[in-house]
């Protein structure tokens, strides 16, 4: 609800309140973006004067198979992570609503702890879980099921799965928490009435619950997609900024880092970063802002 339509009157109070945010936005968001755009059109000179080279960096990316590998990896990683995390979180949130009331809080808390875990600790836990022979995953899951042990961190077929499993472990708890709050906010009487009228559990879920929690699901989706695309710490610590065996774990942010700091080409590094912007922005726009109900909130 808005108060009034101001009639061309400049309100200094409002400007002062809103100005700091937008001023910083210009200095630390718009300026770097602009600088990055300029940089990506210039030659890879480190400190001296650089030449304008137009779209050369973008064109060479087009023919760069490592770049496409990174794009594919990032897309696969994001898709797998988002699907698994949201699926598990939805299940877990439902299970939590069924739990004994007294342990519900502590359990939710426990699930969220991995989300607080620093990336370095993540790298250590990787050793524990994914270690070639003695890792937990091999010892407790793979071997008992009768499979050959998998060298998760150096077998190119499995590196990406290891990164996905880590992301799932890390984010499921937070998303469960968000979804649990959404489930708790459902109107009880509607659900009860539906149950009494003989609507089965599946229909209650798809027809009542799902529409009610869609905004929260969208929020989780945006949060996860952004985090997946910006994922760096995990793979940086594991592979030291490289992509692991035959680039199987190469993600876009680490590729940009590599181009700029290992290859010494700031221009091409900036081009890698910026080449993802339209994709990410377009995707997020489709997911989150086309169903306007979320942000419009009170007005709809």
């Amino acid at each position: 609800m808005a108060l009034e339509k101001s009639k061309f009157r400049v309100s200094w109070g409002r400007i002062c309140l809103a100005a700091p945010f937008f001023a910083l936005l210009v200095v630390f968001w718009a300026m770097p973006l602009f600088q990055g755009l300029r940089l990506s059109l210039e030659s890879d000179t480190l400190w001296g004067a650089s030449r304008f080279v137009g779209f050369k960096h973008y064109l060479s990316l087009w023919n760069d198979h490592r770049y496409w590998k990174a794009v594919l990896n990032t897309a696969l990683f994001s898709a797998a992570t988002v699907t698994l995390v949201l699926g598990f979180a939805l299940l877990a949130a439902h299970a939590l609503t069924l739990c004994w009331g007294r342990i519900r809080g502590p359990l939710t808390f426990a699930f969220m702890v991995p989300g607080l875990c620093p990336p370095t600790a993540l790298a250590l836990l990787f050793l524990l879980v994914f270690h070639g022979k003695e890792g937990l995953l091999n010892q407790w899951v793979i071997q008992p099921l009768g499979f050959e042990t998998i060298n998760w961190l150096s077998d190119p077929d499995y590196i990406l799965s290891a990164v996905v499993i880590q992301a799932v472990w890390r984010w499921t708890g937070f998303m469960t928490f968000f979804l649990l709050c959404a489930l708790n906010a459902r109107p009880r009487d509607v659900l009860d009435a539906a149950a009494i009228d003989g609507v089965n559990a599946w229909q209650r879920f798809t027809k009542i619950t799902l529409p009610l929690i869609t905004p929260t699901l969208l929020f989780c989706l945006v949060y996860l997609v952004v985090d997946c695309f910006a994922q760096f710490a995990g793979s940086y610590i594991l592979f030291g900024g490289s992509g692991g065996t035959s680039d199987a774990g190469l993600l876009l942010v680490s590729y940009a880092y590599q181009k700029a700091f290992v290859g010494g080409g700031f221009g091409s590094g900036a081009a890698v970063s910026l080449s993802i912007v339209p994709w990410l922005a377009g995707m997020l726009f489709l997911i989150a802002f086309v169903p306007r109900t979320f942000w419009k909130g009170g007005e709809t």
Partner: peptide, 28 residues
Amino acid sequence: YRFRSRNLWLGVGVLVVLVPVQMMALPL
């Protein structure tokens, strides 16, 4: 408050969500 450029500023906010600063780490 409701004023003319309000949706413009909200749009800018949306843009910042869509292009996270981590993506621009290098130019930053």
